[in-house]
Amino acid sequence: MADALQAGDPAPDFKLPRDGKGDLSLADFKGKKLVLYFYPKDDTSGCTAEAIAFNGLAKDFAAANAAVVGGSPDPVKKHDKFRDKYELTFPLVADETKQTLEAYGVWVEKSMYGRKYMGVERSTFLIGPDGKIARIWRKVKVPGHAEEVLAAAKAL
């Protein structure tokens, strides 16, 4: 079951359209560490703060041989605007079908003001060079998160 993903499991494969043009897949990062983070929506306060935090540490992630990729159900055109507005230097993938979100167990039932709906649970997966999940953060709180992920990537 997808929501039962744990450290040590092989990361679910994906091939998704990305900002700019083209596709990104898990295979593109073979032999590298990958920080794959899922967020609910482009250009909302929490998602923007998270993207800016990861972007601000881009050189540190690169020095740790770790790539950063953000993913949400937003379409590529929306990702392009979000990337340009905040000068993001890492790729954003669009999972409009939600297949990858479901494979990683982050497309979940949420509740706000008593209303239930499906949405993305803010989550980050650190995937090792061997394609296995090294660490998972679920229900992420943005402040300090990118720094915590960087420390884990450096230690991997």
Rank of each mutant, 00 (worst) to 15 (best):
Leu26Ser: 09
Asp95Phe: 10
Lys116Thr: 15
Ala7Arg: 07
Ala152Thr: 11
His145Gly: 07
Ile136Phe: 09
Ser25Leu: 08
Thr89Trp: 03
Thr97His: 01
Tyr39Arg: 03
Val106Phe: 13
Leu5Lys: 04
Lys77Pro: 07
Ser45Ile: 04
Ala66His: 14
Pro91Phe: 09
Trp107Phe: 05
Thr124Ala: 04
Met112Asp: 13
Pro143Ile: 12
Lys98Phe: 09
Asp60Arg: 14
Val149Asn: 11
Lys81Gln: 12
Ala4Gln: 13
Ala64Tyr: 01
Lys15Gln: 14
Phe125Tyr: 04
Phe90Tyr: 14
Tyr113Cys: 04
Ala58Gln: 08
Ala155Arg: 06
Asp19Pro: 06
Ala103Thr: 04
Phe90Cys: 06
Ala64Glu: 03
Glu87Trp: 00
Asp3Asn: 14
Trp137Arg: 00
Phe29Asp: 00
Leu156Pro: 11
Leu156Ser: 10
Leu34Trp: 10
Phe29Trp: 07
Asp28Phe: 01
Lys33Asn: 06
Asp130Ile: 07
Ala58Ile: 03
Phe61Met: 13
Ala146Trp: 09
Ala155Asp: 15
Tyr113Lys: 11
Lys85Leu: 09
Pro73Trp: 05
Gly22Gln: 12
Lys21Phe: 00
Arg18Tyr: 01
Lys59Arg: 11
Ala146Val: 07
Val140Ala: 06
Thr48Ile: 13
Asp19Ile: 11
Phe54Leu: 02
Asn55His: 10
Met1Gln: 12
